[in-house]
């Protein structure tokens, strides 16, 4: 594997946490819920996965507990205030982010310098991994990368091709009509908040258990918000998340790669790339959609609270 291939393979790996988190967010937004607190759920998943993996010496167990804990956290701190108490979704999003950021820092305080007992190895896909160039980049990755892509394809299929997916989209577009046609709106929203939270938590765990292999407080460094932007960038299409996350992954490794190769640009300047790119992409995408159709591709009822009997 040469240096270019190694850098691109690292980009694919760094894209996986973003893909999980963005997929979780997509499940919120397709059902009309605006969750800008991804960062907090990722941090909770990341710290709990790391703690369990270190204490039990079992990475798979770390992933499982991270998913369950993150789902429970998202249900308690996001779904309950938003769906039951009808609090402002933006305020609750901030609360979710801050509570996750503060609690994860506290929980992981004694795990900062404790290494993982084992590192997760790469799994080579038969035949495909022998492809020149592409094989080394895409098909010799740890299994969470493949799972992320597979889950995204499943969600894309369900949303686009099944009647269940049609009903899900109906909730995000027009919850009153969805309700009138017999879909239990709030129950589905609650269910997918749990699933979405679990995915965000797995994203955080992928970051700490696979990408970095360490825990420090605020390790996500804005990835939750990058994932949020990724959903917009992908035009709310699950399949668009895959190559979108790869693009962001590429920018995320620019700093470390530049440092390793002794580029003359300081790594702190290179490190700005994913953040500046997020702002640029968000602006360009919105401008393009507004110019084309006068509105964005967001679900029409995104962020509105559905209360039975009120329109």
């Amino acid at each position: 594997m040469n240096a270019t291939e190694a850098a691109l393979a690292l980009a694919v790996l760094s894209a996986a946490p973003l893909l999980y988190a963005a997929l979780g967010e997509l499940l919120h937004e397709k059902l009309g819920m605006f969750n800008a607190g991804i960062e907090g759920v990722m941090l909770m998943g990341g710290v709990i996965g790391y703690m369990v993996a270190v204490d039990s010496a079992n990475i798979l167990l770390g992933f499982a507990v991270a998913a369950i804990a993150a789902a429970a956290f998202n249900l308690l701190v996001y779904a309950f205030p938003v769906l039951v108490m009808r609090s402002s979704q933006i305020l609750v999003s901030f609360a979710l982010w801050f509570i996750g950021a503060g609690l994860s820092a506290q929980l992981g305080l004694n795990y900062v310098s404790r290494p993982l007992p084992e590192s997760i190895g790469n799994t080579s896909i038969p035949l495909l991994s022998r492809l020149p160039f592409l094989g080394n980049i895409f098909f010799r990755q740890p299994w969470p990368v493949y799972v992320a892509v597979a889950l995204t394809l499943v969600v894309a299929f369900v949303l686009k091709r099944t009647s269940h997916g049609l009903s899900m989209r109906a909730i995000g577009e027009d919850p009153a009509s969805a309700h009138a046609s017999g879909i239990p709106v709030r129950a589905w929203q609650t269910f997918y908040t749990g699933i979405g939270g679990a995915l965000m938590g797995i994203g955080g765990a992928t970051l700490t258990l696979v990408v970095t292999g360490t825990w420090t407080s605020q390790i996500t460094a804005g990835r939750g918000f990058v994932a949020f932007a990724l959903v917009i960038f992908a035009g709310w299409r699950a399949s668009g998340l895959i190559w979108g996350s790869f693009l962001f992954g590429l920018l995320l490794v620019l700093g470390p790669v530049g440092q390793a190769h002794g580029w003359s640009i300081p790594s702190s300047i290179l490190g700005m790339a994913p953040y500046i790119f997020t702002v640029a992409v968000l602006t360009f995408r919105t401008w393009l959609e507004l110019r084309r159709s006068g509105r964005t591709l967001a679900p029409a009822a995104l962020g509105l609270v559905f209360v039975r009997g009120q329109r």
């Binding site: 901030f94 982010w97 509570i99 996750g100 503060g102």
Partner: peptide, 13 residues
């Protein structure tokens, strides 16, 4: 020192 963020979040909620 980041636990203050937790307090902030609870107050927001």
């Amino acid at each position: 020192s980041d636990l203050v963020l937790f307090v902030t979040g609870v107050l927001l909620l």
